[in-house]
């Protein structure tokens, strides 16, 4: 289990450098609206969604109704549905552990856990690794939110550019994904979808629109290439 823990610490480190500044930006923003610091901690702890929390500050300022809050959050986070879709077979056993993994399925947690950068021999170790990655990311986020609300207005670090750890992490994971699948078509489909989404829709809805386009194109591609399934990869390995 120690191997799983140290692997999780190493793999989640880039997320630490992404989440702490981003969480601090949120905490600072919430605190500047006149909320005591612990509300930022509570929101990071129970919501654990960056975009939704930033949106929350706006919704609170405009005194939005609870129905509006619920519907907007569902729409904003609807891309997570597709993350769960591809994690069905990887989050197998039930109980509180699985509930927690599902709760913590953010963009960054998904990106680490859906890449097969770590292979553990036993399912117990695999589960331990998944829990550590999710828990560590969660703790970085809560730390960032709290720090931002507590001391955000006092410190002036020059962190310009530190947020590049997240695209750098995604770049590494794109390479790792290619190494495991050895197929170009998912990336070509993603490029087409991103281009279409940027041309036809607004920047803010780009991620959701491009994920839906990608899902449709992947399913369409599968119909014309019926032999392609995950089994062809396993036989190559």
């Amino acid at each position: 289990m120690l191997a799983a823990r140290s692997a999780a610490m190493s793999d989640s480190l880039p997320v630490f450098f992404g989440y702490v500044p981003m969480g601090m930006a949120f905490g600072l923003l919430l605190e500047s609206q006149g909320f005591p610091w612990f509300w930022a901690t509570l929101m990071g702890l129970v919501i654990f969604a960056g975009a939704a929390q930033f949106l929350a500050v706006g919704l609170l300022a405009s005194n939005a109704g609870l129905v509006e809050v619920g519907v907007t959050t569902l729409l904003l986070n609807s891309r997570h549905i597709f993350y769960g879709l591809s994690m069905l077979s990887r989050y197998q056993f039930g109980g509180w552990q699985k509930q927690y993994l599902i709760f913590g399925l953010t963009d960054e947690t998904y990106s680490i856990l859906s890449s097969r950068i770590r292979q553990f021999s036993s399912p117990q170790e695999q589960r331990s690794y998944q829990l550590w990655v999710t828990g560590l990311n969660h703790s970085y986020w809560v730390t960032g939110c709290t720090l931002g609300a507590l001391i955000g207005s006092m410190v002036h670090f020059n962190t310009a550019g530190l947020e590049f750890t997240l695209p750098a992490l995604f770049m590494v994971l794109v390479i790792e994904q290619y190494k495991t699948t050895r197929k170009w078509f998912p990336f070509i489909i993603a490029l087409i979808s991103a281009a279409l989404a940027l041309i036809l829709f607004s920047k803010s809805s780009m991620l959701l629109v491009s994920i839906i386009l990608t899902l449709s194109l992947l399913l369409g591609y599968r119909r014309y290439q019926p032999k392609i399934s995950h089994k062809t990869i396993e036989s190559k390995e």
């Binding site: 879709l85 591809s86 998912p186 993603a190 992947l218």
Partner: peptide, 19 residues
């Protein structure tokens, strides 16, 4: 679901990068 579990993550990873 197995097909999507294999090929959706690489595509989404690139989309997150572009995003």
């Amino acid at each position: 679901i197995e097909y999507l579990g294999t090929y959706l993550p690489p595509a989404i990873m690139l989309l997150l990068l572009i995003y």
